[in-house]
Design a binder for these strands. Sequence first.
DNA 1: AATGAATGAGTTTTCATTCAT
DNA 2: AATGAATGAAAACTCATTCAT
Lengths: 211, 211, 211, 211
Amino acid sequence: MGIHERKQREKEMRRKQIMEAAKKVFSAKGFNRATMEEIAGEAELSPGTIYLYFKNKEELHTSLSIDLLGYITSLMKKIINIKSIDAEEKMKKLKETFIDVYEYDSMVLINLFHLQSGETLQNLSEEVLERLKETSANAVSAITSIVKEGIDNGIFVEKHPVALADIIWATYSGVVLWVDSKRLLNNEKDFVRQTLETAFEIMLNGFKVKE
Amino acid sequence: MGIHERKQREKEMRRKQIMEAAKKVFSAKGFNRATMEEIAGEAELSPGTIYLYFKNKEELHTSLSIDLLGYITSLMKKIINIKSIDAEEKMKKLKETFIDVYEYDSMVLINLFHLQSGETLQNLSEEVLERLKETSANAVSAITSIVKEGIDNGIFVEKHPVALADIIWATYSGVVLWVDSKRLLNNEKDFVRQTLETAFEIMLNGFKVKE
Amino acid sequence: MGIHERKQREKEMRRKQIMEAAKKVFSAKGFNRATMEEIAGEAELSPGTIYLYFKNKEELHTSLSIDLLGYITSLMKKIINIKSIDAEEKMKKLKETFIDVYEYDSMVLINLFHLQSGETLQNLSEEVLERLKETSANAVSAITSIVKEGIDNGIFVEKHPVALADIIWATYSGVVLWVDSKRLLNNEKDFVRQTLETAFEIMLNGFKVKE
Amino acid sequence: MGIHERKQREKEMRRKQIMEAAKKVFSAKGFNRATMEEIAGEAELSPGTIYLYFKNKEELHTSLSIDLLGYITSLMKKIINIKSIDAEEKMKKLKETFIDVYEYDSMVLINLFHLQSGETLQNLSEEVLERLKETSANAVSAITSIVKEGIDNGIFVEKHPVALADIIWATYSGVVLWVDSKRLLNNEKDFVRQTLETAFEIMLNGFKVKE
DNA sequence: AATGAATGAGTTTTCATTCAT
DNA sequence: AATGAATGAAAACTCATTCAT
């Protein structure tokens, strides 16, 4: 391993370290009330250092989302590549993946869905926006390919695959946000898992061609 | 009309006037970048006056959402009370209402769905939080009653009515936010209408008991 | 009683009513955190009405002090006029009066002594300042006359009567403020009475010519 | 000198620089009319910087008082430690010290005595309040030790030493405030020095056991 | 590369006071 | 005389970001 590679790797580790700290603080305080100083403290670095790795607060925040989005997409790609099961089975696995991700990192997932806001998007740099678009498009296209397979095989109703993929994704984000807000408003238990289960069951049922 | 009633009415009009101005400014700038001074200017009032009618910026913002939520609920109640149609028809009308509301006031609707965030909820006064909870519960209970009718009549699958109502609402908010963010990210056209159409069609299909 | 006199009397009563309310609120909140609106509420009047009777907040506050100062002076004058006792006895009665006043209305008395601050004095109108000066001078002159009698009769040491009167007054205010602050700082019991007793005893002892 | 020590020293100097500026502005304008911006300007710093060193306006103000109080106490401790003189002589030196301090920094001294107000005390942080209590207790205890010596040696009357110390301190603050207010009210000359001289003479006379 | 002290623009909010009714 | 809605100036304070070291 050359000296350059080691430097590169160290740099990458420092980035992760900052993101890990940011995740904690954003989760605890929300975007507005989290301060760069606190994130720096959590990462055991100085505020100035964070700016060597991230252009600004907004982009640090968005980076967390992009990361998670990429991770979800990678999981979905694995599902797509399974040869032995059909689209309906893949949809079921998709549902399970969604639930796993929620349970693994609910706060960042919630942030990710909140990112879908004009106010936030307008403040991002061209570059990060580009990365976000790309990662987002990848996620949708992964879902799309599953849906397409279902339509091609005559299992799913004939709707445009992208439209169906959007609906899957929208339902995912909608359920996560909605049930979370019910939890906050009414001190209810966390019903995201059950609600996602039901939502995807209904959706899958709705997708299927009726004989 | 007594003097007291006139005063009361004037007061109510002033509130509306402020909310109208706030709606404009929040829509144009988003919550954070909107300033109370600008809202005051838009309402042709002084900043101090706003504070006679709303405790703070957060609550002014939330009031817009509560209002819209109450409006949606009132529309849903009308649908519920139609005697001549069954639950499936009512669901279709619900979808149409949702689309109408989106087209009538998309910005406030988007705000409403963004309200579902811990950061925002934590800053509200007990009183406004209570009003929000109540209005929100009313909305869900309206949907629930339609769903319940469908289940009772053997048209819809036997799932808990509240769960299904949550899914309807979550899908509504998810689609609105998701398609809006796609529009912002990719400069796409506004596909909310079509996507809602499809989403509700799929959902309705998924709700129905198969013979 | 003519109509004019009745009006006059009503006006005076309204003033008292406002001052009574102001006393409560200033005592509870301190000058800065007391608001005119709260005082108005306490007096069951509107804010505007207060301004018909007092030029501004500062003067309303000062009026309370002037009133109390005038009351103390009237008590002192009674003592002066007692023919049957000598200056030493009068000093003792003075001490008792001071203690009584403290116990009757400690908050206003504390305010009165805090009034001795450049910041406050600079904001008063010429007229109220004049009344304050006059009332204050009356108070000192009452004490002075007792001291003078003592010096003239050879009971008290030969110091200038005004200087001694100042010291009496300063000690009174100093003890009241100091012991009150100790009470606030250390949650001590209220030792003003005992401390005043001792202070005046020491002072009287110090005043007396030694044989 | 290590790098850490130099940093520490620089930090301390910056604090002093801010306090020096604050002293000027508070003296000229009084607490309420002084603005943080003006203090910052006077210190040739930005407003934000002040908040790196002092939590808020209130605490910056109180810090000035605590400093002076600590200084007075250190002077008193020196007096206590003089072996060659008795309590009566020490009391005389105490008086001189009090006068010196007044002449050295009358505005801060006046502020210090005004600090004795519930309104102010209630806004301080636990930490600063603690420091104030401690410094204040030290001051009283210094005086107490002188008084105690006098009582033990049979020179002073048998009163409780703390009570006598309170009276000394109360008289000091009372005279300073009272004479200052007379100066403001009546444009009189500054008679604090003379009045303090007389007050302490009287008090000392009063303290002494009569043969 | 890392630091962290300093910046200073920017905004909410308060409340004494006024004045049309 | 009384009201009380409206005013609007005024200021404390925060915190993302910079840059000299």
